[in-house]
């Protein structure tokens, strides 16, 4: 059992090392800088520029957070501070079910619900033509996918705020909303940031749902109505043919390594913050 536990801890590093080992050949031919900055993606001629994919990932993730964070903050505050326990009893299972829905289902929903809305109603107001398969669509689908993690962590964090602190503000004659705005949210800020970072990293790595709705155009998007091609989608779409072209597999493994490192760091930081909050206020 000791061995299993130690093995599981070192497993984190094993993944990193394994991916690095497979991606290493790529570094012989390219500098890290050129990999990040170059926009040229032509595996058959040995050109691997990750810039469009990194931008695609950033756009989709950013949109998802911009959509999801305000909604989930409001929902979290409502559920912990205002809602009757009956509302809470209904909402929390709903959020749990939402968390259990597989990515591919989100993708199907995205195709039949979000894509047409973007194509027919949203995009025509701003731009000439859009297929509906855009980074905006991907962002919206992702936003719904990160609802559960955001709502549940935000609620958990808000629950750790001592009642006496709220009472102190209330007894000075502040309204409940003023108390929430000026005291509760301020005190909860580290936890909310940690939750956001965690949600960002979830969004970063999400593959199939985004791949199905965001167009997969290997060009850095310039507006929300452009298609995009996030890193996970790149890996998923090209894994089949990668063995036939030299360095292609290394390039895809590099993409996986990139995801791993970013998400590893994000998770590490936010988990440390969250654990600290829990320790500080649970005793």
């Amino acid at each position: 059992m000791l061995i299993l536990s130690i093995a599981s801890v070192s497993f984190v590093f094993l993944i990193g090392i394994g991916l690095y080992w497979r991606a290493a050949p790529l570094f012989n031919e390219n500098t890290l800088y050129s990999l990040f900055r170059s926009s040229e993606w032509a595996p058959s001629s040995g050109k691997f520029g990750f810039y469009p994919f990194i931008m695609g990932t950033l756009w989709v993730t950013l949109i998802a957070i911009v959509v999801a964070l305000p909604l989930c903050l409001l929902t979290g505050v409502y559920l912990t501070e205002y809602a009757k326990s009956s509302v809470r009893r209904v909402m929390l299972p709903l959020v749990n079910i939402l968390a259990g829905i597989p990515p591919v289902i989100y993708g199907v929903w995205g195709i039949f619900f979000v894509v047409p809305i973007v194509r027919e109603y949203v995009a025509p107001r701003f731009t000439e033509y859009s297929s509906g398969y855009t980074v905006l669509t991907g962002g919206v689908v992702l936003a719904v996918m990160i609802f559960p993690i955001l709502v549940s962590i935000v609620s958990e964090v808000l629950k750790t705020i001592p009642k006496e602190l709220k009472d102190a503000s209330l007894s000075l004659g502040a309204t409940k909303w003023e108390t929430i705005k000026k005291v509760v949210l301020k005190r909860a800020l580290p936890g909310i940031i940690a939750a956001t970072v965690l949600a960002v990293s979830r969004a970063f790595g999400e593959t199939i749902a985004v791949l199905m709705v965001c167009g997969n155009v290997p060009v850095a998007p310039t507006s929300v109505f452009d298609g995009g091609y996030p890193l996970p989608a790149l890996i998923a779409n090209n894994f089949g043919e990668m063995m036939s072209i030299p360095l292609y597999d290394s390039a895809l493994m590099f993409a996986a390594l990139l995801l791993f490192v970013i998400i590893f760091l994000f998770n590490l930081v936010s988990r440390i913050i969250l654990n600290r909050i829990e320790h500080k206020y649970s005793s």
Partner: peptide, 20 residues
């Protein structure tokens, strides 16, 4: 209620300074 509470200062068991 905010008017009523303004009329009374509360000093709780442990000090709870606001996070500012």
């Amino acid at each position: 209620v905010t008017h009523i509470r303004k009329k009374m200062g509360l000093l709780s068991q442990r000090p709870y300074p606001l996070p500012m």
